[in-house]
Amino acid sequence: MSVLAGIHAIWLRELKRSLRDRGQFIGGVSRPILWVLIMGIGLNPYFRGEVYGEVRYVVPFTFIQFIFPAVIALNMLYTAVQSAVSVIWDREFGFLREILVSPLDRWAVLLGKVLGGATVAIMHGLLVVLLAPIADVPLTPVRLLKGLGLMFVLAFGLTSLGMIIANRMRTFEGFGVFANAVILPLYFTSSSIFPLDPSLTRAQMVVIFPEWLVTVVRLNPLTYAVDALRGVFINFHQFPWVTDLTVLFGLSLGCFLIALWDFRRV
């Protein structure tokens, strides 16, 4: 019982800190606008091929519909990194000590932190979902619930990943560069802004990717998370559900366990 109260306290603190951080909120609002409204609308006309004079989409969706689920993942990715910063902050500014000398178990401390970070990440994911009408993605309650479930698993995994990174960082210097060096490559190679395998689409003759890129995309775990989100939100996916969900759950659990292993040695 007191363990639950402790987890709740840590969760609440993470939430309060994030909600009071205006910079984080501005980032969370500006990214979806940038990606969905500007990138999405701007590239919409180019996301189709012309076969015998007939205009066809590479995948049977508009570009804005296609990247919409990926931007949800992107926004959550940034928030997860922010929670890594919060861990470094706690460690360097002493608050971690306050937690470590409390009678709360280490796993409970980590779980509280990850759940707090995940909650904030889901909120930022929902900021993207708000743009669904503009992106022409019809939302039904079932879709939203399924989407929330996937977002939770993804957020949990990404926040745990943030903890793992934080444990390996000593200072804030260069963290911005580092964060971007992780976030953007992960995002770009997750089949987020272009479909992975054209053979799955009607326009397979139109675009041919080099083999190395296909390999990178297939190795990137985020690919499967984006694919699952796409499956839920626009009913299009390139991999079987089983693959998507296995990778997603595996990633979350794996990252959490590694983070826990790290945290026990602090």
């Binding site: 002493g94 608050f95 971690l96 000590r97 000398v101 409390s102």
Partner: peptide, 17 residues
């Protein structure tokens, strides 16, 4: 731990709360 109170040499407050 539940029986001790500690004030560390370095501050350990959350200054955003």
């Amino acid at each position: 731990r539940s029986r001790i109170g500690v004030v560390f040499q370095d501050p350990s407050l959350d200054d955003r709360l």
